[in-house]
Amino acid sequence: MTASATVRVMSPEEIAARAGEETPFLHWPQRESVFAEREMRLRQLARGHAMEDYLGFLARIAHQQQGLLKTFPSVPLPDAQAADRAARAGLPLIPAADWPRDPAWRQVVRDMSQALSQEVAGKAAEVLSTLADADEVFLERQADALLHGLVTGLDLATAPVVGAALQVYWTHMLLATRDLHQGQGQPFGRIDDETVCPCCGSRPTASVTRSAGESLGQRYLHCSLCGLQWHMVRIKCPHCLSGKSLAYQSLTGSSGDSDSAAATAKVQAETCDDCGTYLKIVHTDRDPFVDPVADDVASVTLDLLVAETGKERHGVNFMLLFGDGGGDPPPDQGGQ
């Protein structure tokens, strides 16, 4: 497989015409289905994939996430005064780096690890059993490393499960805060840094082109932590905001697929020559079941090929972490 440049983004005039004030700024994860839909997509992608075992294991994680999100206990949430202060300062309301984490998130790690350890075998079961008994210091240090984007001290073997627990916690806080402030105004909105999540300040995993309603054809960035999606016009690089040198890369067959065939790819890498970064983009108009997290993992070959051109990955995916070789890889047992 090779990486091949395809069509460029729409003209500024066309995008401006389609990105009027009627375009919703935010799209919310659905508490009843967000991780269940990801599980379904992971199982679909796993069939016959070179990473079938790992994608199947991630599907098991997503299954646990959905159940734990539904039963997540009450935790402290930002009040109206905190929302007002954050809005005035142009800052995220529940910042990943600074929010005082409630111990409830650690119980999610333990419950998830215990359940998963019963479904896998070998080294993976040992890792998960150890994680289920991990102490507070270890878990909080792992959370700090993940939420600050640090590799030093990060245990790559347990990072997907720790990251999954943090996703459940922040997704719950996002939705519970929205519901708490219902009728009092929207607690989440635009912040000064449009490249990070308006809720938690995390970087996106990928971007999504939406295919329905008022958002038809619009690009949204998908938060790597809380799952919130926020609108950004497609003439801007999601990292440096430049609109001068954006292009798309996709996986095409070695037999020489045409640019028009590549332009129908469900997953592409949006590259920027100005800052030298790329972010995956998934297209729901080409496949309504694409999921930013699942399809990002399944298209890791695209990362490897784009990296060969010197571009650096901008997206963050707790299920697809690239370390310095100092730790074990994530557990890959469990199949589908």
Rank of each mutant, 00 (worst) to 15 (best):
L150W: 05
L150D: 15
T152S: 13
T152G: 06
G153W: 06
L154E: 03
L154Q: 03
D155H: 09
L156T: 05
L156G: 05
A157N: 04
A157P: 02
T158N: 03
T158Q: 01
T158S: 06
T158K: 04
T158H: 04
A159F: 11
A159K: 05
A159N: 06
A159S: 12
A159M: 12
P160A: 03
P160I: 00
P160F: 00
P160T: 02
V162A: 08
G163V: 07
G163A: 15
A165Y: 04
L166P: 14
L166H: 14
L166W: 10
L166M: 13
Q167Y: 12
V168E: 14
V168S: 14
Y169T: 08
Y169I: 05
W170G: 04
W170E: 07
T171F: 07
T171S: 12
H172Y: 15
H172R: 10
H172W: 15
H172P: 07
M173L: 10
L174I: 15
L174K: 15
L175H: 08
L175R: 13
L175Q: 14
A176I: 11
T177A: 05
T177M: 02
L180H: 03
H181K: 08
H181N: 11
H181S: 09
Q182R: 14
Q182E: 15
Q182T: 15
G183E: 01
G183R: 02
Q184M: 12
Q186D: 13
Q186N: 06
F188R: 03
F188Q: 03
F188I: 11
G189F: 10
G189A: 11
R190K: 08
R190W: 01
R190G: 01
I191L: 03
D192L: 08
D192I: 05
D192C: 06
D193K: 13
D193Q: 12
D193P: 05
E194F: 11
E194R: 11
T195G: 07
C197E: 08
C199P: 01
C200M: 02
C200S: 12
G201V: 14
G201L: 14
G201T: 09
S202Q: 04
R203T: 07
R203I: 10
P204A: 15
P204D: 12
T205M: 00
T205F: 02
A206C: 05
A206S: 11
A206T: 08
S207W: 00
S207F: 00
S207C: 01
V208P: 10
V208T: 15
V208C: 09
T209F: 05
T209L: 11
T209G: 00
